[in-house]
Nucleic acid binder design. Structure first.
Lengths: 175, 175, 175, 175
DNA sequence: TATGAATGAGACTTCATTCAT
DNA sequence: CATGAATGAAGTCTCATTCAT
């Protein structure tokens, strides 16, 4: 990966996350990356290819993030780590941008990356089963739906206090 | 409101909700509405004006939907009605389109219409207070965040079963 | 057909005939036609559509030109008129441009509009039959191939004297 | 001539002949030749230089092909060999490509390489003189024009039967 | 009110060519 | 000799918007 290719990816991630995919022109990306516009197409074929490259890169991030949870045997720890996912996602700007982009793209391209969440859902279902819940699979889904809601708020509501919410939910779940 | 103006609004709502604001060209709207492109600009000044008109129209819908909850004295009924909001929002295609657009626009334009939700949040806080909760304002927020998560899932995940989730949450809240 | 649409067609015909389809940019066409570039796409969808429109328009010309021959009962007259086709094709600039474009496109797009020539080939075969030729269908083809050769030379060789050649061939065919 | 330079020439010949000069990008040539794009420019300066190199190389072919005819003393043999040129031109793929390109370029660049044909035309004129024709120079030209027509058809009309036509013409010319 | 021709800016993309390695 | 990253100009096309009718 050349330095300029890297720069394009970073610039695009930031711009796509900020302004959306459709609204970000390739010329804007090029300018921000300090690169000729043509180079984008040499490296990524077309604008969609650039997006795909960003998403693929980010999927590695997701695997690492989720991996820790999926292999956690202790059920309470599974819940705790899931809830703490939120804070981890935004620990540095590039991560935050990536996850924001992820959500943005869900709405712009209208697909929900169900499969990506599946292992997490299973791990949670398993955890709730161990904890003796009546409807563990629904309970797992409720928690994940909640996480989606938190992300929505965090990324879109300027004054949303994510930390407080996560702490509160941790006490609710007793973890 | 002339018949053609109405047709433009309906066509635009559907298209904006389906494909997004940026991705929908005025010419597509005109074609779908069976109207000349120029007419859009005569009626709505510009593309943004069309969006604003749609949103303003929809706010009436919101007032009606929320009003019923806000003036409900019985705390359990407040929770019940809030949870049932979800089903009400999608009772007919035009409503569903409108609420989907609402969410889409949140992400495309990056603003969270906090103020719109405020009366609801107050009503919920009040309800949770009456029900003896420790942190009623946080509890209210959790519920609303959950609703955002449900909307995200419902609109984006093809096979998401909203009814089951709402029913489950009703039992959780004991309503 | 608006005046500007007409102007685009004329400008494009001239440029395509002179410089070829691929080598003529839509912006050049627009400039020559005194028209905004976008208008080309509004009227003809894309660059290929513009070419098709030109060719379709020209096919009317072809029908008229050929029609006269196809319905000629006198065999010698069929030959005579066929040979004189060449001169008729270039009687005015627009016609000449059109036929040149026709030949250019054969090479640029690699297709030979066989079907267009079929009625003419049949008429000639018929004429040669009546004149008692041994292999009338081959004789007909030879004549048409010759016409293609004449066109090639006329359009590409600056000093080629078409009149002399046609006259000579008329005497060869005794018409 | 290095092996890679040779490969570029062959790839370019094939592509130019198939798709035309303008429509063939240097990157396509490089890919087909299995060579870096830059190498084309190191060897041929620019795209036109590549074309010129191909044509120059091919002119050797022409000299050999024509030489045999020009130095033929027997007039009937001159005619026979001229007519048989057609078959010779397409005996192997590289030759066929070259001659097709030759014709393509005539139309794309709008010049008729008269000078190349001159010796042939003189030889034919001479032959027809010996055979006692009235207008030997016109007769020579008719034959060459015919050859152009045959080439046009052969290269552009998928189902054109060149052999039959050449045979028929040979009998017409009594050779 | 309504049309639809027309525009101009800017979008994405291609491509011949240069240059450091 | 050879590569491949990089560029900049130009190409096709889209789109919000204007305007005469």
């Amino acid at each position: 990966m050349t330095e300029k290719k890297e720069k394009i990816l970073i610039a695009a991630l930031e711009l796509f996350a900020q302004e959306g995919f459709k609204s970000t022109s390739t010329s804007k990306v090029a300018k921000k990356a300090g690169v000729s516009e043509g180079l984008i197409f040499r490296h990524f074929e077309n604008k969609e290819g650039l997006l795909e490259a960003i998403i693929k890169e980010g999927e590695e991030r997701a695997k690492i993030l989720f991996g820790d949870i999926v292999f956690e045997p202790e059920p309470k720890a599974v819940l705790k780590k899931t809830l703490e996912l939120g804070s981890k996602m935004i620990e540095n700007k590039e991560d935050a941008d990536f996850w924001k982009l992820q959500y943005k793209m869900k709405w712009e391209l209208e697909f929900y990356g169900e499969h990506k969440m599946e292992p997490l859902e299973l791990a949670l279902t398993n955890a709730f089963t161990k904890l003796g819940h009546d409807r563990p699979e629904l309970e797992a889904r409720v928690l994940l739906v909640n996480m989606d809601g938190l992300a929505t708020r965090y990324f879109l509501q300027k004054d949303f206090d994510l930390g407080v919410m996560i702490d509160y939910m941790k006490t609710k779940y007793g973890v």
